[in-house]
Design a protein around this nucleic acid. Structure first.
Lengths: 198, 198
DNA sequence: GTCTATACACTGATAGAC
DNA sequence: GTCTATCAGTGTATAGAC
């Protein structure tokens, strides 16, 4: 404790990252300009270069890294905090994803990545795999090992699961009468027990 | 038979639409420039304005309209051509979607639409609903009416289904050992019977 | 740390020759 | 129908004052 000055070290940097993440996540890399970000922060576009000398791409890369790392940590924690029931683990994972900025893997892979240097793109895609697909795939792997699931296609299932949860976020607002979490529960039960069960 | 000249009426216009659709679908509205499209066609950027006086936005809107209309027709046809089994209808729908440019509803709603005039955006989103969600929701509605499905959330299910099929297209290529159609079949069975069945 | 000013490239769009 | 030429607007990025 003590002075606030050292505590504010990098504070505006974090503010920039936070605002940029929000905008990038909303409209994608190409559509968001540095002026959009600066305007949202109430500063001038050129001022961003003091905190991010690497410019727009460096800012975007760091935003993605931070976001993906938070997803990996949060997902692993949510899953670990749930019971051994795959259903509980999937609900915890879905709840965390919906509480965060929902990752749009389609746009990321096919719109954003082609705009940045290939080395950066490859590393980010690898991070996305490790941070999003792998933790979810782990749930399906354990369910398979314990005989509860009959499909060994854990990566395929993880991608489908994340897309399903994200689709809740894409639905036209007029069709969302129930809360998001209830829709997630509905879809998770479809995933586990099928539409035809009971 | 006859002269080829009249038959070529609007031929280059169709060529432009085709190329533009491919590029827009690949990287999204903002990332694709008119020069990208012109280069791919081997013509000059200004020449596009002869066929599309409305410029980039008009071209994009017509590309989307054509694509969505083709999806509506194709989906309705594929579903009608299948048996009365929901499983067959879903497989036919998935097969058609994968045979086409896979629609990225997330990017469309959150990246592309904010870039164009709101009137155009609203009409296109309505078309997307009618052309993509509604035909699929019909399958789930009939399955529900016949007692085969126990969920009345047909729109939610349709959005989830399309996202799942699209997720096949987003999967990193190194994890696709089986053909796309086989992955679609796997996921459809999960959708209908659940992971825990059998 | 933030500002102003500006360089430079790119993009959409228009005018007019052929 | 396609071209060249050109313009205004916008976007990233840099230099330097404060």
């Amino acid at each position: 404790m003590g002075t606030t000055a050292p505590a504010q070290m990098g504070e505006s940097r974090e503010r920039i990252l936070h605002t940029a993440e929000h905008l990038f996540n909303e409209r994608g890399y190409a559509s968001v300009t540095l002026r959009d970000i600066a305007d949202a922060l109430g500063i001038r576009q050129a001022s961003l270069y003091y905190h991010f000398p690497g410019g727009k791409e460096a800012l975007f890369v760091e935003v993605c890294e931070k976001s993906l790392d938070r997803h990996r940590t949060g997902l692993e924690e949510a899953i670990r905090g749930a019971s051994s029931e795959p259903r509980d683990q999937l609900r915890a994972a879905a709840c965390f994803i919906l509480s965060q900025s929902v990752p749009d893997m389609g746009r990321m892979a096919h719109s954003d990545m082609p705009e940045i240097a290939e080395e950066h793109a490859q590393r980010l895609m690898q991070m996305a795999f490790d941070s999003l697909l792998r933790p979810i795939a782990g749930i399906f792997q354990r369910a398979y090992d314990s005989g509860l699931s009959h499909s060994p296609e854990t990566i395929l299932l993880a991608g489908a699961f994340i897309s399903v949860i994200a689709s809740i976020h894409h639905l036209p607002a007029q069709f969302t009468r129930q809360p998001r979490s209830a829709m997630a529960d509905t879809l998770i039960d479809v995933f586990l027990y099928g539409l035809t069960s009971r």
